[in-house]
């Protein structure tokens, strides 16, 4: 019995044929077997998921004009005179919905930002490490701006003494994990953003995995041990790391782009001294966390100039913004050989 197989599009290209006649195939599976024997790897790569007999979802197979998904799949029986057509789906999609265009209109109309910038944001993945005074405003502004995927990480529970500055956590959240409390607020703020909460600390074991799939990391940590771990992982994986730290009325911030400027270890070879309980006025991390979100958005969109090679020093008491040069240390144990 003879079955006519018609190839279209990429299948025509892979086989070099418009059609082929196959004898003695009882069903679609055995027909495909014969075809791949005849046309080899080029065809089987288009048909099957790598290393399996599972058809790709980019394959349409029709028997006499009916999709095999509506018949019996690969077990669909064939008879003499049947015509089988093989071609890819016609499909696609734009990146932004009309709802998103309206929601983000005021930033899309910024010259140089535009729809292209918004599409980049939507594709971007950001890690906010720490959901305290810095991480709260940073993640809120990133979510409001429409970053596509945000991983938020914090192992701790909300305490009453957090609430003067950690504005994502409210009175009713005391005792809850910070990650859960933050996700609840952020998802209501902008349901378009995919949120992933990780109630864990940064460790030597998870640091690389945390940063490897993201485009930017925001430092919202409250200790230098964790900061150094993230800094090292970001240098190894070549991921931008936006450092921020606060105390009392003062804050500091810099953007670390591995290979371009100094890393955190170049700037602070040793852990700066710090009290167990540090004083903080809420607006101080509010200012710094917003600036960290600003840096992240600029890097993702490719607009403006990132704060590389300079440290911003903010003093809210005197209301002064100051900048100091920070340099790469050629002998830095973390980035010396990058």
């Amino acid at each position: 019995m003879a079955i006519t197989v018609k190839f279209f599009a990429s299948f025509r290209e892979a086989t070099g044929k418009e059609q082929e006649t196959i004898e003695g195939a009882a069903n679609v599976a055995s027909l495909l077997e014969q075809l791949t024997r005849r046309f080899g790897d080029k065809l089987s790569r288009l048909l099957y998921e790598p290393g399996t007999n599972k058809l790709r979802d980019t394959v349409n197979i029709l028997v006499n004009g009916r999709g095999i998904n509506l018949l019996s799949g690969l077990r669909t029986e064939l008879k003499d005179g049947d015509v089988v057509a093989i071609f890819p789906p016609v499909s696609g999609g734009a990146a932004l919905t009309p709802e998103e265009l309206e929601r983000y209109n005021r930033q899309i109309i910024i010259s140089g930002f535009e729809k292209r910038g918004q599409r980049k944001l939507k594709r971007a993945r950001v890690l906010v490490a720490g959901l305290g005074g810095l991480g709260s405003p940073a993640s809120a502004y990133l979510v409001a701006a429409g970053v596509g995927h945000l991983t938020i990480l914090d192992a701790e529970q909300v305490e009453l003494s957090n609430l003067n500055r950690q504005i994502l956590h409210w009175s009713s959240d005391v005792g809850r994990p910070k990650a859960a409390s933050a996700i609840e607020k952020l998802s209501k703020m902008n349901p378009n953003v995919e949120l992933e909460g990780r109630p864990e600390a940064v460790t030597r074991e998870n640091a690389d995995e945390l940063v490897e799939s993201v485009d930017v990391v925001i430092d919202g940590m409250d200790n230098y041990h964790a900061r150094y771990l993230l800094n090292e992982a970001c240098v190894r994986r070549q991921v931008p790391f936006i450092h921020g730290a606060v105390e009392g009325f003062v804050g500091q911030m810099t953007t670390i782009i591995p290979g371009e400027g100094p890393c955190l270890r170049c700037i602070f070879p040793k852990e700066p001294p710090s009290a167990q309980v540090r004083p903080v006025l809420g607006p101080t991390p509010g200012v710094m966390g917003c600036l960290q979100a600003m840096e992240a958005i600029k890097l993702i969109v490719g607009i403006g100039k990132p704060l590389v090679g300079q440290m911003l020093l903010f003093d809210g008491g005197e209301m002064v913004f100051d900048f100091i040069q920070v340099r790469r240390d050629p002998n830095c144990p973390t980035c010396g050989d990058v």
């Binding site: 349409n60 029709l62 004009g65 009916r66 999709g67 057509a85 071609f87 789906p89 016609v90 499909s91 696609g92 999609g93 734009a94 990146a95 932004l96 919905t97």
Partner: peptide, 11 residues
């Protein structure tokens, strides 16, 4: 943000 044609119609 997505489109897809019915393969039977395409055919």
């Amino acid at each position: 943000t997505l489109f897809e044609m019915d393969p039977q119609f395409v055919h």
